[in-house]
Design a protein around this nucleic acid. Sequence first.
DNA 1: TCTGGGGTCCTAGGACCC
DNA 2: TCTGGGGTCCTAGGACCC
Length: 425
Amino acid sequence: MSTFALVDGNNFYVSCERVFNPQLEKRPVVVLSNNDGCAVARSQEAKALGVKMGAPWFQMQALARKHGIVALSSNYTLYADMSNRMMAVLEKFSPSQEVYSIDECFLGLDGFHTDLTAYGQAIRQQVKCWTGLPTCIGIGPTKTLAKLANHIAKKQREWAGVCDLGKLSEHALNDLLERIDVGEVWGVGRRIREKLVRLGINTALDLKRAEVAFIGDYFSVVTQRTVVELQGVSLLQLEEVAPARQQIMCSRSFGLPVTQLTDLQQAIISYTTRAAEKLRRQSSLCRAVHISIRTNPFRQKDAQYSPGLTVTLPKATCDTLKLAQAGLWGLQRIYRPGCRYAKAGVILLDLVPAEIRQTSLFTDHETDKKNAQQLMQTMDAINQRMGKDAVFLAGAGVEKRWHMKQGNKTPRYTTEWKELVVVQC
DNA sequence: TCTGGGGTCCTAGGACCC
DNA sequence: TCTGGGGTCCTAGGACCC
């Protein structure tokens, strides 16, 4: 019998901001997506005012003014650093950890002969003390049940932040599951929920009691697996080492509509640069580049155009110059003048592991290849040390009229010397 | 005027081959 | 004029997650 814990940061991005600005405590706060588009994190107070996850921010202006909601641009540098700190603390509490997302991780608790609720409280306290971040913890015999337990710990105050489903009787567990909407189950999204409800499956308990074969008639094996996991049989294991990515993407909406080819070219070069850095970080090469551009689908009156094109490379590479060249070649082909473009994206596909080979030990005569590798390594090293975009391809542009909006971004409190918090004594 | 970004997995259906 | 069936591979699209 397995035991999993799921530790999840509460309102994670908002909590990160609050660590460095305590004046945000007890106030309605939201963090906006890139381009200040949508609300992607909300404090408890903001949720209570009815700000929905993913709500377009411009539609919330009146509400925000009325209640003094603080809206912050997203500061991913800060959140990633805080996430690393949180994960480092959590790692100490289990021999096995799977970092599942920026704000949550699974811990394996097999063979822990201790009161897991108390252990959970100890974890929460340590994380709060060492990072300032509040968390909730769900515990159960499968990952799906641990996720559900976490949901309960967050929504039902009486659990005080830790819910261990493993120690409930079957009867008590079912009572609890009966009161949870089936849409809250991990793996049941909007579409599958609608279909389940039509079949008379409304609660987590209904889904647990469904026949696996019956579910198989209407849904994929993924949903069948969910049913089995709800029944307490663990099918999903901890994945302690993150597998190498199979594709790497970089896309952004523009701060302003773009019509000129040159602006799109700059964007494609910038995004390719970002994606290629990630590619090299995981020591992969790619054999195809997919680029896409699109107009604003919300502007129904505008002519809509959203082409994409995959460019196959003659040889697998991680050279930003070659990748950008391929991307620009593709862009030429799909660009159509007269459209108001709102977004562009680059996906590196068909990834293969790079040969592990030190450049300095490179002994063959492929000088070009060697030079390209050295150039990329040098670029990465400089940007690592001197900050993002200390060196970049000139084609990416300097002015970047199209660059995304970030009207209210907080400092990079923990990662940038000039922006460190200074404590007055 | 303003509506995010980055992933994975699964399935259906077409292309192709014998 | 008549015109099979089955396997495999690939891709696009849909669903999910945070």
